[in-house]
Structures are given as C-alpha cells and as structure tokens.
Amino acid sequence: MPKQMAELLKNEKQPYTGAHAEIEVTGLSKYFGKRKVLTKISFELEKGGFLSLFGPNGAGKTTLVKILSTLVAPSEGTVSVAGLDPYKNSAAIRSKIGLISHSPLLYLDLSAEENLRFYGAMYGVDNVDARIDELLEQVELDHRRYDLVRTFSKGMMQRLAIARALLHRPSVLFLDEPHTGLDPHAVDIFESLLDTIRQDHTFIMITHNIERGLALCSKAMILYNGQIAFYQNKADLDTEMFNEIYRRKVKGEC
C-alpha cells in the first residue's frame, strides 16, 4: 500500500485492496493556480468493486471522475484505469470506460436505434447490429427501437442510457448521480439492470442518495474540500462514523 494512503487514512479499518486493482489512484492532486480542487487522493478499487462517492457540491467528486475518464489531466500523482494511464493512453482507456449520468447523453431527435448506432460508430463496435439487438432486449426497449428518444419517459431514457453506456463492452462504469430525476419504479428497474451487469464491471458512483449508495457499494468514500474525509470497506463499515462525517461535512451541520 502506498505511503501517502496510509498517512491519509486515519481510520483504523483500512479497506482491503486486491492484488489486481482495476483502478489505482496514488497521490492525485489537481489544482488551478494555487487553488486546490483535489489534494493527495489515493485509493484502489479491485475488479468488480463498487465505490460510492459522497460529498457536497464542489468537493471534487466530478473532477475525480473526469480525471479517471481522461477528460481532465491531473496536476500531480499517478492514475491507472484497467492498467493504463488515462492521460497517456486516452483513446485506449476511453474504449474501456462507460458513463451513466443524470443526463441521458442521448440525442432527442434520433431514434433509440440511431442513437446506439451513432455511438457504435464512435467506438468502432464490431457487429453493431447484433449488439444493439441484444442490448435493446436487455433493457426491454426493443419495441420502441424506432421511436424518437424525445417521446421516451425519464425511466426509459435512463434504460437506453444504460444500453448506450454498455454498447462498447466497457469494463469500468462511472455513474454520475444516476438516481436523480428517477421515480421509484424507474429506480427499481435501474437497479435490477445494475444487478445483472454487476459482476463483470467495476463501478464508481457519485451520489447524494445515502441509502442507495451504501446498499450498492463495496466501498464508500466521502470527499470534502478535495480531500478524503471518509473511506472504508462496506464489510466493516462504521455506519455511525459515516453518518457523523456525512452530517458534518456534507450537510454542514456542526
């Protein structure tokens, strides 16, 4: 385990990290001028792991995910996703990661199939027709494949967004507040879908939803002011401590 990490984690129950970490972050900092967005972030996530990322707005959660997904270059530290450095092998990494966001990342004036076909061309997916059939069936949208996304309900859009994210068979999935704007029924469908893909993927989820976030995760982290305020394995999660830190840092209560 890297030294910085040991220093940072003052909690006694340090998370177990496997030998083959899918995501490895060591001493990661991002600053603009003197302003620090992220300070010395270190963590590891094993293949098949699920990290839930909590924190107030502006804590650096989105920046962290953007760094991992090659959209932002880190100022310091090393990052490895699926064994690759996002900044140096950006194209190679991008074909291994997927994003499910609170916005669907879909073109409203295209049909479900056209959307998938477009992203298929972007990713150079082989046998794109068969893949689209398979995915639309999986998210139960094959009866709507020729309809414009504009006519979809929020839940259907989110299902299609999942199909879109899985199209190129990524091994790492980033979820950016995926519960936002979903009704309870849509959440159920969404989570049963997550369940079916759970074992083949590694997840990092940004969320404000404590209940769902803790239920799904294998590790939980709270970022505050660009630093790790809490980081534990779910197996030995100290719920009281989590709630205490969450209340203090995220909600700003004293």
Partner: peptide
C-alpha cells in the same frame, strides 16, 4: 445546443475520438 442539452457532448468526449 443539441450536443449540450442532454449532455451528449460529454458522451462524445468520452468516446475514443480525436
């Protein structure tokens, strides 16, 4: 506007395109 409204630009940026 189409690219920005539903976050499509982010989706585009995350795909392996120069």
């Amino acid at each position: 506007v189409h690219e920005k409204d539903e976050g499509c630009l982010e989706g585009l940026l995350m795909s392996p395109i120069d």
